[in-house]
Amino acid sequence: MTANDTGPDEEGALLVRVTRTDPDAPSEFRVRTFHPMTVLDVLLAVQREHAPSLGFRFSCRVAMCGTCTLRVDGRSVLACQTVVPEGTERIRLDPAAGFPVVRDLIVDTAPFWEQWARITPYVVPSEEAAAEPARIAPDSPEREAIDPALDCIQCGACFSSCGIAGEPRSFLGPAALNRALVLVQDSRDSATSERMELVKGADGVDRCHYIYGCTGSCPKGLDPARSIRRLRKGGRTHGG
């Protein structure tokens, strides 16, 4: 469909191409820019000025909830965090990859959560830990080993960037494996053997091709590829 114009030669107009599920719906728009302008600002402008039916998700606007993941010119990002560089003339917006599309930029994230659930993404305390709360000191080797893999917000950007994860494949995916490493490192957890059996199985670390798309796309600066390498070497690196 042709662009909804503010004028093709108007200074500051950005051409936005958006994937639409309705083939008859407009998919090209021109919006006036300001700086700094995020991709979420662009989407809201398109929805407000041109296409009220445009489907996309967002919530917190501060890169905490992980709701607004999509692809910008092929890169998996958070719309609320990604600033459109000054001088950009056009951008393409697509739904996150590896997920069934519900409508426009909205995807069904069930494949991500199915893999996340498989690694039992919470501490399974031992009887001793359940009887008396355990403590991991902030300056301990254990905490230092865990820290680099914390702060995942389950946004699915790494999953979208991975050429192996997603339907119909059964690879656990970068986020689940990163979480598995955190729990394997945690001395309070009693499910290490079960997790390591899973991550070293057919759907685990050996499926990773080390493309590093997951690491490059993480909005929190985590390195899932590093976590996968550590799991491949046995997981626990501290003395606990």
Rank of each mutant, 00 (worst) to 15 (best):
35 H>A: 13
35 H>Y: 11
37 M>E: 13
38 T>C: 05
38 T>S: 15
38 T>Y: 13
40 L>E: 03
41 D>W: 10
42 V>I: 03
46 V>M: 12
47 Q>V: 02
50 H>D: 06
53 S>V: 11
55 G>W: 02
56 F>P: 00
58 F>A: 00
58 F>P: 00
59 S>A: 14
59 S>D: 12
60 C>E: 03
61 R>Q: 05
61 R>C: 02
61 R>V: 05
65 C>Q: 03
66 G>Q: 02
66 G>F: 01
67 T>V: 13
70 L>E: 10
71 R>D: 03
71 R>F: 08
77 V>S: 07
78 L>F: 04
78 L>T: 01
84 V>W: 08
85 P>C: 02
89 E>M: 01
90 R>T: 11
91 I>V: 10
93 L>M: 08
94 D>H: 12
99 F>P: 07
100 P>Y: 13
102 V>T: 08
103 R>H: 06
105 L>N: 09
107 V>Q: 07
108 D>C: 05
108 D>M: 12
109 T>A: 14
109 T>E: 11
114 E>H: 10
115 Q>E: 11
117 A>P: 02
124 V>H: 06
124 V>L: 06
125 P>W: 11
127 E>H: 13
128 E>L: 14
132 E>K: 12
133 P>T: 02
135 R>H: 12
138 P>N: 02
141 P>L: 04
142 E>T: 15
143 R>F: 15
148 P>Q: 03
148 P>T: 07
151 D>V: 04
152 C>R: 11
152 C>H: 11
153 I>D: 15
153 I>Q: 14
153 I>W: 11
